[in-house]
Amino acid sequence: MGIDVIFRIAAVGLITAMVSQILKKSDKDEIATLVTLVGLIIVLLLVVDVLSELFVTLQSVFGAF
């Protein structure tokens, strides 16, 4: 964890954007959309642990359960 995940998200975003652009230029718009969606899902999977940690911290800070 740490700054690693931010760099990883940035790399996934960059690569997904490039792949999407290449596919759009090749008239494969529907696959480009699919690739963007897959990129989003990958990023969500990367941050899901961090998000769950955030919610646990918030619960403990505000005393909610």
């Binding site: 690693d4 996934v12 690569i15 490039m18 792949v19 290449i22 596919l23 090749s26 008239d27 494969k28």
Partner: peptide
């Protein structure tokens, strides 16, 4: 003409994506 020329770029980027995910 449409897919052949971009296949190398797409393959390279897919390999990089796999590397980022395995990092």
């Amino acid at each position: 003409a449409k897919l052949g020329r971009s296949a190398v770029k797409l393959g390279f980027l897919a390999g990089l994506l796999a590397a980022v995910l395995c990092w």
